[in-house]
C-alpha cells in the first residue's frame, strides 16, 4: 500500500469528512443526472459525479478523456444553473465546518 493511503481510523474519518460529508444531492433541471454538491463558501463549489449521472448528462456523456479531449475541465452549464438554483432555494447550505 502506498504511503499516502490513509490507514489510521482518524485519517480515514478525515478522508470521509473531506470527500463525502456534507455532499447534498442536486438533480439537474434538464436531465436525469443527480450529483453531490458541497459549497464551502459562495466562492467555492465541489461537484461529485457518479458514472450513472455522467451517462445521463447529454453535455458530458460520450466524452472520452483518453481521446485527449482538452475540454475535460469544462462544466455542464445546465447542471451549474441547476446548482445555482438549488443554492438560491436554500437547498444547499453554504459554509465550511472549519469556519470561514
Amino acid at each position: 500500500m502506498s504511503s499516502f493511503v490513509p490507514t489510521r481510523p482518524e485519517t480515514l474519518e478525515d478522508q470521509r469528512l473531506y470527500t463525502e460529508a456534507r455532499l447534498v444531492e442536486v438533480a439537474c433541471l434538464d436531465c436525469t443526472a443527480t450529483v453531490g454538491v458541497k459549497k464551502n463558501s459562495e466562492h467555492h463549489t465541489s461537484v461529485q459525479w457518479s458514472s450513472a449521472a455522467l451517462r445521463a448528462c447529454p453535455e458530458l456523456c460520450g466524452h472520452d478523456p483518453s481521446a485527449g479531449r482538452r475540454d475535460v475541465h469544462r462544466a455542464c452549464p445546465r447542471l451549474m444553473a441547476s446548482i445555482d438554483a438549488a443554492v438560491r432555494a436554500g437547498d444547499v447550505p453554504v459554509g465550511a465546518h472549519d469556519g470561514y
Binding site: P6, E10, T11, D14, Y18, T19, H44, A96, D98, Y100
Partner: peptide
C-alpha cells in the same frame, strides 16, 4: 499520511483517492 487540513487547502483527499 494524515495532513492537518482546512477546506481551503483544496481537494487533497480527492487527489489521493
Amino acid at each position: 499520511q494524515n495532513p492537518l487540513l482546512c477546506e481551503e487547502d483544496g481537494p487533497v483527499y480527492q487527489l489521493r483517492r
